[in-house]
């Protein structure tokens, strides 16, 4: 265990958590509006390659993230059109979106394998970054890590204090009632889906531009599915979703460090441990059926057809 340094571990935990935090927050907003989009994985990987390609072509990581958000949102627009416009089944459409995204990203990414993207600089926090221990763990990251935390707080405040947030929750709770009161259910849900797509795109680009940083086919490797699970784990609350993302990030980093330190546990077992823990926690969390059902948006996944 001597090879593991606590401050490095904690610092890389924050980096590991950020991509799934973005994707999970986006998906939470989508689900709060009553839509289940299982295409997070597809939107993440499309965001990863769009961000990567944009950053390489323009030389600007910032533009890369903007491109990633547009790419993710663009793919989610397909989902919005199919499910909200043509009333297709959300589960099947979401799965198709993931398959499409994986193939599509591989196609675009053919010319980008083995290229190094422009580096994303750390945020200059001056003397804060020089603090012993705390400086390395908390204050020497790139801006996206802090943006993820800021988004958590902003989404919490949006859902709790704003009228738009209330309307979003109302649409997810009962689309029939919202329609009867004159709210535009389809329009609100489409906006939520686009936001979810953009967030998933940014999360994907964080993988290809910062965490790894390079482009390989299928590099999201299930991060989108983990983000979906985190929404349930967090019981549709932003604070708990963030907690879940950091927990998962922590276990991922720890298992990598344990492997590097040569702990006498089979590598395969270590590699699956983050997923095992996620499943375990989900099972424990969902065992209280009443509590889960209480927080889940009541119209989640149901097709809305405006009756006359």
């Amino acid at each position: 265990m001597a090879g593991i340094s606590i401050d490095l571990l904690l610092a890389s935990l924050m980096v590991a958590a950020t991509p799934i935090l973005f994707a999970a927050l986006g998906e939470m907003i989508v689900e709060k509006s009553g839509v289940l989009n299982l295409g997070v994985e597809g939107m993440m990987i499309v965001g990863a390659i769009c961000g990567f390609a944009t950053a390489v072509e323009t030389g600007s990581p910032t533009l890369g993230f903007v491109g990633a958000a547009l790419g993710g949102a663009g793919l989610s627009l397909v989902f919005a059109f199919l499910t909200q416009g043509l009333l297709s089944n959300q589960v099947a459409t979401g799965l198709a979106l993931t398959l499409f995204g994986l193939g599509f990203s591989a196609l675009i990414g053919q010319g980008y394998v083995g290229i190094k993207p422009p580096a994303t600089p750390s945020l200059d926090l001056g003397s804060l970054s020089d603090l012993p221990f705390v400086g390395r763990v908390l204050f020497s990251h790139d801006p996206l890590v802090y943006l993820g935390l800021a988004m958590t707080a902003a989404i919490w405040a949006f859902l709790r204090f704003t009228r738009a947030g209330l309307i979003l929750r109302a649409v997810g709770e009962s689309h029939d009632a919202a329609h009867a009161l004159g709210y535009k259910v389809v329009r609100i849900r489409t906006a939520a889906i686009l936001f979810g797509g953009a967030m998933a795109g940014v999360g994907g680009a964080y993988l290809s531009l910062v965490r790894v940083p390079q482009w390989t086919e299928g590099m999201t490797a299930g991060a989108g599915w983990i983000a979906l699970a985190l929404v349930v784990f967090g019981a549709w609350r932003p604070g708990r979703v963030a907690l879940g993302a950091y927990l998962f990030g922590g276990i991922t980093v720890l298992q990598l460090n344990l492997q590097a330190a040569g702990v006498a546990v089979p590598v395969a077992l270590l590699s699956i441990s983050p997923y095992l823990v996620t499943i375990l926690v989900l099972v424990v969390m969902s065992s209280d059926r009443r509590r889960v059902a209480m927080n889940a948006p009541a119209s989640l996944g149901r097709v809305f057809h405006a009756a006359a």
Binding site: L166, S174, D176, A177, A298
Partner: peptide
């Protein structure tokens, strides 16, 4: 006043009323 379909069970009374008003 509707017969069905215009209240949100998981929201509280004040939120339900605010949703039915123009400028709450």
């Amino acid at each position: 006043v509707f017969q069905h379909f215009s209240l949100f069970e998981a929201l509280d009374v004040a939120e339900n009323i605010a949703l039915g008003m123009e400028n709450p």
